[in-house]
């Protein structure tokens, strides 16, 4: 595909158009991804997640500057939420990334979630592939302001950085399942504000620095470091970068890099299968039949589960698969 060729050869507008094609799931999107895929698998994909206003974009800006000072190229995908009412979005992450303007070693793309709920857009993973194939050595993925359950980034990235800020909750919040469990590096940003030390301590308790079972073997396992930063003036950012690089080495030396890749590919494959199977089934059933079934379910003649099972069994018989 010509667009892919030009994008991978370094034409930045072709790269932007290619991302749009994939984001909009246009008619050639599949062919484009097919052409891109053999060139992927080289970038270190780093997720930046955390609650709204903790300083994710500012940290992304600072991290990118550090990588650039080492001549390492950086692609950035910044995701913000789509309105459930209007379908519109305000993508405001670039406001914190002005320092990166004019640098040909950086490419920033804002994405709206367009209805996805896991903290990323449906196409974010594919856009990351495009930046990876285009040769960016690090791809930073900034999620929407995430609370507790937006854990899609764990699959999309090699290394997940969770950004917290002082004053957002006590240690019970930190003990809850979800986002905290997927973090490889923990950052308490805005550490010049009161309460930063307590927040760091609550996080230490939560990630089990004080092991619940004394004597449990922990050597050789990755211990998420807890780091304090003031991203606005760059304090502590170099340490975050070191931790991210250390995590990459850890993944590579333990074989977890390949293992994570397998888990990601599996999830992606199942996801596509699920979508395509559903689309296939819906086409076969037809809108009318579906409508009749819905009416029967509403009238309590049938329950949703039985309706689905009988539909599936009809389809399988029809195809002679059973």
């Amino acid at each position: 595909m010509e667009l892919v060729t030009r994008a991978l050869a370094g034409n930045r507008y072709a790269l932007a158009r290619l991302i749009s094609l994939i984001e909009n799931d246009g008619p050639d999107a599949h062919a484009a991804l097919q052409a891109v895929y053999p060139h992927t698998g080289r970038a270190h994909i780093v997720g930046i997640t955390g609650a709204p206003g903790t300083g994710k974009s500012t940290l992304v800006n600072e991290l990118a500057k550090h990588w650039r000072s080492r001549q390492i190229t950086v692609g950035i995908v910044a995701v913000d939420p789509t309105s459930p009412f209007s379908g519109g979005a305000l993508l405001g992450d670039r406001v914190r990334m002005h320092d990166l303007a004019g640098d040909p070693g950086v490419f920033i793309r804002s994405m709206a979630t367009r209805g996805s709920l896991g903290g990323l857009a449906r196409a974010t993973g594919d856009v990351v592939k495009v930046l990876d194939a285009a040769g960016f050595a690090v791809v930073l993925v900034e999620t929407v302001g995430a609370g507790q359950a937006e854990v899609d980034i764990a699959r999309a990235a090699h290394t997940v950085v969770l950004v917290e800020a002082p004053g957002l909750g006590d240690e019970v919040q930190a003990l809850k399942a979800g986002l905290l469990e997927i973090a490889d590096v923990l950052v308490v940003n805005k550490a010049d504000r009161p309460g930063a030390a307590q927040t760091a301590l609550a996080l230490e308790m939560a990630v089990g620095r004080y092991a619940a079972n004394p004597g449990e073997r922990t050597e050789g396992l990755w211990q998420p470091p807890i780091l304090q930063t003031v991203a606005l003036n760059g304090t502590g950012v170099a340490e975050v970068l070191e931790a991210i690089e250390r995590h990459r080495l850890y993944l590579q030396t333990t074989g977890l890099w390949a293992e994570r890749e397998r888990a990601r590919v599996r999830a992606e494959l199942l996801n596509v299968l699920q979508q395509e199977a559903l689309r296939h089934i819906l086409t076969r059933i037809g809108e009318q039949h579906l409508h009749r079934l819905i009416e029967r379910i509403v009238a309590r003649e049938l329950d949703p589960c039985s309706a689905a099972y009988s539909l599936l069994s009809e389809l399988l018989h029809e195809r002679g698969l059973k």
Partner: peptide
């Protein structure tokens, strides 16, 4: 920006 967002557009706000 807000009006365009409410009209269903994706607004990239640069500041």
């Amino acid at each position: 920006s807000r009006a365009l967002r409410d009209a269903g557009m994706e607004v990239i706000y640069l500041g």
